[in-house]
Amino acid sequence: MEEKKHPVFVKDPNKTYGLMEMVDGTSPMTEKRVEDTVETFPHYIILLTICTLAVTFILMIISLLFDAPLEELANPLVTPNPGKAPWYFTGIQELIHYTDKPVIPGIIIPICIVLWLFLIPYIDKKPGTKIGSFLNRIFIGGENRKVLLILFTAFIIGALIFTVIGALFRGENWNFVLPWK
């Protein structure tokens, strides 16, 4: 019966295996459960195109409406008050303002944060030893990583708050000002 249906597949008497079944499918994967996949083209490519065009369009609008700042020619003799770092470093500048030991917020804290960020995936893993599980409890807070979540969220909120204050709410002599006045 089977051979009449598919005369192409004639069984070779020397073979120890044969064609068992024809299965309809869209994937060449075998011995794995079916994954919920879609074709990259068109599903993803369309989204990619829309997103690319939208971001480019928004940037064009922003560039039409707002001009990049260009102040007076650089003059080493005229110090602006306050002299500000680029906005992504005003958080550090704001922290330096609170202390008379600028090495701590200016150098030590940023280096520690970057090192800590590098190390996150290596400390947030299943502990193998007793010391490992002890360190995990202190720095990660177990399987639901409570300690790490609190530390990271504090870092994000702190960075945002200090950056915004430093960039917008600081005027002459680094005194507190309201940006809309």
């Binding site: 007076e72 020619l73 650089a74 470093f89 200016g106």
Partner: peptide, 19 residues
């Protein structure tokens, strides 16, 4: 090379001298 640039970099590199 305007005032913003010059003093932004001056402030930033001054922070480096705290090392």
């Amino acid at each position: 090379w305007d005032q913003l640039a010059y003093w932004g970099i001056t402030v930033g590199t001054t922070i480096m001298t705290y090392t």
